[in-house]
């Protein structure tokens, strides 16, 4: 008698009628976020971030001499982003060559950070941001952007604001925030939003799947709400770190 419902057969119940997601979160809850700056002594600035099981390491070098002179800009610094996923970052070990996806993520990184860093202060130089996903569980772009922000601040580069990123999607037209890998690999759309929290300006808005425009607003709002929350956490990390440094200096 209930044949029609077999359509959803063997699909996971991503959002139960009780309002809980598969990992126990509610629709509007972020995963646990922990971050740390100054983790690499060799780099000028570095940060490590964990958003749930997604773990990302960011290292910032520069401003330094431009490697390929032909790229040099005489009025500002150039920004170079390299995104990489560790072969051990997913459940199945995979050697990843530099593919389109990685390149596009690197380009997205450049687009995101160019307007935020005051590059005009460093003409004829280069700023390198290296991003490494150590463990992947969904939302690697948001983790990278958040980690890069922390690393850039750690490097002491002048910026106009933080850049905080967060993903959102929708399951059965119910918007959800901060998708993990299971949710990401379902047919839910995934929207990544990066904002400048002080002004609320949207810095990046990226989506590669179909989402009806009527649903879009609620999803985008939830994502920017998530960005605000992430900003609070990142800001706290920076403040704690700075306080620690101050303490060290006083001693």
């Amino acid at each position: 008698m209930s044949r029609i419902f077999t359509i959803n057969m063997s699909r996971l119940e991503l959002l139960s009628p009780e309002g809980l997601r598969i990992d126990g979160r509610r629709a509007n809850e972020l995963r646990k976020l922990t971050a740390k700056t100054g983790v690499l002594s060799q780099a000028d600035g570095s940060a490590y971030i964990e958003q749930g099981n997604t773990k990302c390491l960011a290292a910032v070098y520069g401003p330094r001499e431009v490697r390929h002179k032909m790229n040099m800009l005489h009025d500002r610094a150039i920004i170079n982003v390299e995104f990489n996923m560790a072969p051990f970052s997913t459940a199945e070990r995979k050697k990843r060559s530099k593919n389109d996806k990685q390149v596009s993520k690197s380009v997205l990184g450049i687009i995101t950070f160019e307007p935020v860093i005051k590059t005009t202060l460093y003409p004829r130089s280069q700023i390198d941001i290296y991003l490494q996903i150590l463990q992947h569980d969904g939302g690697d772009l948001q983790a990278c952007i958040n980690a890069a922000t922390l690393a850039l601040i750690d490097a002491g580069l002048p910026m106009i604001d933080y850049v905080c990123a967060c993903t959102a999607g929708s399951i059965d037209k119910e918007p959800i925030v901060d998708l993990n890998h299971v949710e990401e690999s379902s047919d839910s759309p995934e929207l990544t939003v990066a904002i400048l929290p002080k002004t609320g300006k949207v810095n990046l808005l990226q989506m590669e799947s179909r989402l009806h425009v009527d649903n879009f607003e609620s999803v985008a709002n939830l994502a920017s709400e998530g960005c605000e929350n992430i900003y609070q956490i990142l800001d706290q990390v920076i403040r704690d770190r700075t306080k620690g440094l101050l303490k060290q200096m006083k001693q």
Binding site: D23, G24, G52, N53, E92, D137, N180
Partner: peptide, 10 residues
């Protein structure tokens, strides 16, 4: 394959 999932207990 070993799959690691988060589980938030409330």
């Amino acid at each position: 394959v070993k799959v690691v999932k988060e589980h938030y207990l409330r």
